[in-house]
Design a protein around this nucleic acid. Structure first.
Lengths: 241, 241
DNA sequence: ACCTGAACACCGTTCAAGT
DNA sequence: ACCTGAACACCGTTCAAGT
């Protein structure tokens, strides 16, 4: 139900950017990224679609604003580590916070990854504490950048896989498994063996494994640093959100 | 210049799927993913846009077909490793092949990642040899699946970052660096330090670092396997206790 | 200053009509 | 069997007109 044309009366304040972003995020979370159109957004706001252009210059900017807002959420979620803190804890905390934010807005993940400028900027803004712990631990500047990028790239890839796995109805890996253990078993025996032994995919375990492996690999560069028993092992499971 | 309506004469065979995919890939490679529309594709083929629907049921299917074709390219590029081969070599070869294919079609990377079903299927189809080497090396079934997923997720994340970095004109990390080393230096000192020391980003070095670190981490799980000096530069620390 | 509505140049897709 | 062209229901965005 569109309101009347013209400047809104002072007591009924009309649109503002915050409101628009809220509505946009609502649509994306509930109905998916493709559902977000300027016209649909106008309907959600109870306003003429064109009214939005007075507050936001276009759809592209609106999307990057959405991405930035999500990273602002994350910025609030990441607790800065103390000076003496273990860099491994910092890595786990950062990765877990990143994943957590992505899990809250699975339909936005593709937009985040599409807008890599905003995403890397957001990721870097939240990662000062991570840089600090790595530098403290003795990583050189280039090693630190490479390490952060490794973590960011991995989490991006994981988060994307996790988000799109959620959109597919029956787990497609199950389908693949069924196909492999069926007639195609002879073509890919090793895959059939590996996937055949697998029960339900535990994404938490998988994420923990990935992060733990990366940490173990980075530890290799830091032979002097203390070994952290949580770096690898069967009973960790604390990267959970 | 559209050809005449009606069934084409036998000597002028008209459209076929292969031709359509070629044209679509040409458009995406040259003009980017958003440039690919059914109408634009029709123009590229010198045919009525609607003629395409007689060979391909819709745009979505066309895109997954494109993704599958790219993975078929990769399938040809991955040379199966021998039984005795080092699993680390298999990991490096697979990752490098995957990255190579993505680099040839940077504009398609987002489509690949969007169509995660087709992508994971394609990735898995090319990775039987990887599964085999990991299994041979003594990785358990669950560990093998987790290891492959770790590699796939990382390479997906890296490839995406690499592809979109290519689309941005001036390296946006340079911009961030400039902003950091400017007035904002006090807010993010560790980042400014790390990025400040960095010359031109060497993406090859970064990718090698990522893969080497993952391999080193996975080696931690395989204390009995021979140490590969190429896995990482300096000494690799002792076996797990 | 802020909202509106017609209009423009696009989309993907359906469908009856051509040969 | 294969191609065509009008048509439908959408897009993002511009712009003159309202109050």
């Amino acid at each position: 139900m569109p309101r009347r044309a013209g400047r809104p009366p002072a007591d009924q304040p009309g649109l503002n950017v915050e409101q628009i972003l809220d509505a946009a995020l609502r649509i994306v979370d509930r109905e998916g990224l493709p559902a977000l159109s300027m016209r649909r957004l106008g309907r959600e706001l109870g306003a003429d679609p064109m009214a939005i252009y007075h507050h936001v210059p276009g759809k592209r900017v609106l999307l990057t604003a959405l991405v930035r807002r999500v990273f602002a959420e994350m910025h609030g979620a990441v607790v800065p580590t103390n000076e003496g803190a273990d860099w491994r804890d910092a890595v786990r905390a950062w990765a877990s916070a990143y994943r957590g934010v992505a899990r809250e807005h699975p339909n936005l993940v593709l937009a985040i990854l599409s807008d890599i400028e905003a995403a890397t900027e957001g990721a870097l803004e939240t990662s000062e504490t991570l840089f600090q712990r790595l530098a403290d631990a003795g990583f050189g500047p280039i090693e630190t950048v490479h390490a952060v990028d490794l973590i960011v790239d991995y989490v991006n890839g994981f988060v994307l896989a996790e988000a799109s796995r959620r959109q597919v109805g029956p787990d497609d890996r199950e389908l693949l498994k069924a196909r492999l253990t069926g007639d195609g078993a002879t073509r890919s025996p090793a895959m059939a063996w590996a996937l055949g032994e697998l029960g339900d995919m535990d994404l938490n375990a998988e994420f923990d494994f990935g992060i733990a492996t990366i940490i173990a690999g980075l530890s290799t560069l830091m032979p002097l640093a203390d070994r952290d028993p949580r770096a690898l092992g069967s009973d960790l499971g604390e990267t959970e959100s």
